[in-house]
Amino acid sequence: MSDLPDAARQGPKPTGRLEEAEVVAPSRWKTIWDADISYSFRQSPVAMGAAFVTLVMVLAAVFAPLVATTNPFDPSSLNLMNGFSAPGVPNAFTGETFFLGTDDQGRDVWSTILYGLRISLFVGAMAVAFAMILGITLGLLAGYLGGWTETIIMRVADVQLTFPSILVALLIFGVARGVIPIEYRDQMAIWVLIIAIGLSDWVQFARVVRGATLVEKNKEYVQAARLIGRKPGAIMLRHILPNVLSPVLVIATISLALAIIAEATLSFLGVGAPPTQPSLGTLIRIGQDFLFSGEWWILFFPACTLLALALSVNLLGDWLRDALNPRLR
């Protein structure tokens, strides 16, 4: 070897200063803006459009009392004479104009849609949250503990998967109706709906979380935590859970669209939200009665709303799945 200055020969004690020069901490906002996921969002007109539609609908639902022209469920504000007003045409008796028309009882369709959207979104979101909590918990337990715990949880999941989820929801709904006293039924209907849809939907969360947990639990950072005597509960919650959440996020978004449709289906079948608290599905069922008598708007506008909501949430989920998949990037 050739002659070297002493410093190079002995190898100075590592300082690492030099390597640090590469990493300059940018501001938080810049970090978020530069992240791959936000870049992918800005590059996708579909995702931006879907997000916009979803956002508008959520805002409209949340602020329904402010946006709606009337409160359709306050009997004092209703005038039966306004019934069957066509969209944008002044009513023959009262001269009032409703730009989306009214239904048989004179309720403003625009307002019923806003309030229906509220119920639909609430039920959908709560059902997904319930399914998510249940599925993540069971999936983590099955994946991390293995053995009999895993066998029992995953076999139950397999059995449930062989039934269509709407059938499972119907079954749970039916059982709940039998158990709950009649005077509470309407009051509890929304919650029964949430539990029925949630219970029919936990399986896919559990499966995905179990799969991801099986991968993560063999990684060395989990072994390092076991080594220092961390309890299984702490390892699952603090180490594994944060690392299995991105696929869960994708499923949750797509599940939200499915849950909204499931709720609408159940309500359309007459076993969901009661007419006193109509969701979009209930509105469609009501509107269906008048479809062939020419009052198309009672069905058409709620149906369009449901379609737009389910479609945009689903598109958002599709985009999220692609954006979070490193292989497609």
Binding site: K219, E220, Q223, A224, I228
Partner: peptide, 28 residues
């Protein structure tokens, strides 16, 4: 204590460095 082979899998990607390297002490 143990040092593992794969420096990419042996640090929890969702944790900050402070929390990672003090875990053997903070866990107790």
């Amino acid at each position: 204590q143990m040092i593992f082979q794969d420096p990419f899998a042996s640090l929890n990607p969702r944790w900050r460095v402070r929390d990672i390297i003090t875990e053997p002490v903070s866990a107790r």
